Amino acid sequence: MSLEYPENLRYTDSHEYVELTANIAKVGVSAFAVDQLGDIVFVDLPEVGDEIVKGSAFGTIESVKAVEDLKAPMSGTVTKRNDAAIDAPEIISTDPYTTGWLLEIQATDPSELNATFSAAEYRAKVEGA
Score class of each variant (00 low, 15 high):
residue 2 S to N: 13
residue 2 S to V: 13
residue 3 L to A: 06
residue 4 E to C: 12
residue 4 E to R: 14
residue 6 P to E: 12
residue 6 P to R: 14
residue 7 E to A: 10
residue 7 E to F: 04
residue 10 R to I: 03
residue 10 R to E: 08
residue 13 D to K: 15
residue 17 Y to H: 11
residue 17 Y to M: 10
residue 19 E to I: 12
residue 19 E to T: 10
residue 21 T to N: 13
residue 21 T to S: 15
residue 24 I to W: 01
residue 24 I to K: 01
residue 24 I to H: 04
residue 25 A to S: 11
residue 26 K to Y: 06
residue 27 V to N: 07
residue 29 V to R: 15
residue 30 S to F: 12
residue 33 A to N: 07
residue 34 V to G: 07
residue 35 D to L: 08
residue 35 D to Q: 10
residue 35 D to M: 07
residue 39 D to E: 08
residue 49 G to W: 02
residue 49 G to M: 01
residue 50 D to K: 08
residue 51 E to D: 08
residue 55 G to F: 09
residue 55 G to Y: 09
residue 57 A to F: 05
residue 58 F to T: 00
residue 59 G to F: 01
residue 61 I to A: 09
residue 62 E to D: 05
residue 66 A to L: 06
residue 67 V to I: 15
residue 67 V to G: 11
residue 68 E to A: 15
residue 69 D to E: 15
residue 70 L to C: 05
residue 70 L to S: 01
residue 71 K to A: 08
residue 73 P to Q: 10
residue 74 M to Y: 02
residue 75 S to Q: 11
residue 77 T to N: 03
residue 80 K to L: 11
residue 82 N to A: 02
residue 83 D to M: 05
residue 83 D to E: 06
residue 83 D to F: 03
residue 85 A to Y: 01
residue 85 A to D: 00
residue 85 A to V: 06
residue 86 I to G: 00
residue 91 I to N: 05
residue 91 I to L: 04
residue 93 S to Q: 11
residue 95 D to Y: 13
residue 95 D to P: 04
residue 96 P to W: 15
residue 97 Y to R: 12
residue 100 G to R: 12
residue 102 L to F: 09
residue 104 E to S: 02
residue 104 E to F: 07
residue 106 Q to G: 04
residue 107 A to F: 00
residue 107 A to N: 03
residue 109 D to H: 12
residue 110 P to M: 00
residue 110 P to A: 00
residue 112 E to A: 12
residue 114 N to D: 15
residue 116 T to S: 14
residue 116 T to P: 11
residue 118 S to K: 12
residue 119 A to K: 00
residue 120 A to H: 04
residue 120 A to I: 08
residue 122 Y to G: 10
residue 124 A to I: 06
residue 128 G to L: 04
residue 129 A to M: 09
residue 129 A to V: 12
